[in-house]
Amino acid sequence: MTAPPTDPDDLADLTGGWVNFDTAATGIRSVDARPDKGRLALSIAEDGPGAAGTRTTLAATPLVDAGGDGPAVGFLAEGRLGTLDTVLCGYLNRGLLTIDVHTAHPDDPRVPPVMYRAHYYRPGLAQPSEPREGLL
């Protein structure tokens, strides 16, 4: 995918460390996002069977609100997380980073393709007091 380099200032709302406040969840536990030549480099830590402690880096394309020239409000990343083909649709949502995580096993049809949503907060800032699962 090709997109013009994005000014680091326009990535500021997305960059930094993000932690899944659902500590019981498996999947992506945390994401560190940093500017990388106008794109985002996502360092992703996962939890779960066979994935505990693993960390993978994916390149993400920053996205602005359609029709606007403002800062980036979301990103799209496509690549491999462990053995799974993965599409990450991330966006800022009321101060949280929400990521819709789509996974599919490329070689084993017995593994069902899965989509889950996870919400991440910035450590050091006010942590949400309750899960945001009610959010659409």
Binding site: M1, T2, P4, T6, T61, L63, A66, G74, L76
Partner: peptide, 14 residues
């Protein structure tokens, strides 16, 4: 998520 392939416009999100 719409990503122009020409690299001249930013990607857009709705």
């Amino acid at each position: 998520s719409r990503i122009p392939l020409d690299g001249e416009r930013p990607g857009e999100w709705t």
